[in-house]
């Protein structure tokens, strides 16, 4: 099972994401932003970082990278896609996910261990978790406040498309404590906190982030 990890100029977390893919039991395949070839991968991860320096808006320029045209096409055909942090921002700018990520409500760049609740475990990226399971993984971003209009929020909530929520105090002003969402088809997932930094207790706050990467293996084996 081949999981692609895209590197844009300014991506930071591609190596951790690739390591997490391997820890989850899949083969990690490096994909390059300027190359439209997805190299026959079965799923794609857009990792965190500051692609194109976050110029203009986070993810706004990455959206037009050659590789993204292939990702948008493949996502439309059902390929599982996970965007973490900056990757989530790129997915929103690409209109693969609704809404937008805006400046944290208190303006601070947050870097801390954050408890989240997995509220939808029916996606290919969350099936290893129990619905309602709470995990602690790092949150590190300056523009993580999920915003959308009331109609979109009602759709997301009504269709069970919120996949994870922050537990406790709202860290960044996200509507309805939203930490992650999925598209109508359920194959594209965006998540603000970083499961790839929490696959090993030696270096992360827990190993509970690994579930995202074992989920994708299970989804593809089925």
């Amino acid at each position: 099972m081949r999981v692609g990890v895209i590197t844009f100029p300014g991506t930071l977390d591609d190596r951790d994401a690739a390591r997490a893919v391997v820890a989850g039991g899949c083969e990690a395949v490096s994909l390059w932003h300027a190359d439209a070839d997805l190299k026959n991968v079965d799923a794609v991860i857009l990792p965190g970082g500051f692609s194109y320096g976050d110029y203009l808006r986070c993810g706004a320029i990455s959206r037009f990278a050659p590789v993204m045209q292939s990702v948008i096409e493949a996502a439309g055909k059902g390929m599982p896609v996970l965007g973490i942090c900056n990757g989530f921002q790129v997915l929103c700018e690409s209109h693969l996910l609704p809404g937008a990520l805006t400046r944290n409500s208190d303006l601070h760049f947050l870097c801390r261990d954050q408890e989240i609740e997995i509220v939808n475990n029916s996606t290919p990226w969350t099936s290893s978790y129990k619905a309602g399971e709470k995990i602690v993984i790092p949150l590190k971003n300056g523009e993580g406040s999920f915003q959308c209009d009331d109609k979109t929020l009602a759709e997301l909530e009504g269709e069970g498309r919120v996949i994870a929520r922050y537990v406790g105090q709202n860290p960044n002003g996200s509507r309805n404590l939203i930490a992650g969402i999925t598209n109508a088809h359920g194959n594209v997932v965006g998540l603000m906190p970083h499961p790839e930094h929490a696959i090993d207790e030696l270096t992360g706050p827990s190993a509970a982030g690994l579930g995202f990467f074992t989920s994708i293996l299970n989804a593809m084996v089925k």
Binding site: L56, R57, A60, F64, C92, G99, A100, T102, Q147, C148
Partner: peptide, 8 residues
């Protein structure tokens, strides 16, 4: 398409 994000 580029300079603004019509969502926000």
């Amino acid at each position: 398409v580029l300079l603004s994000n019509p969502v926000i």
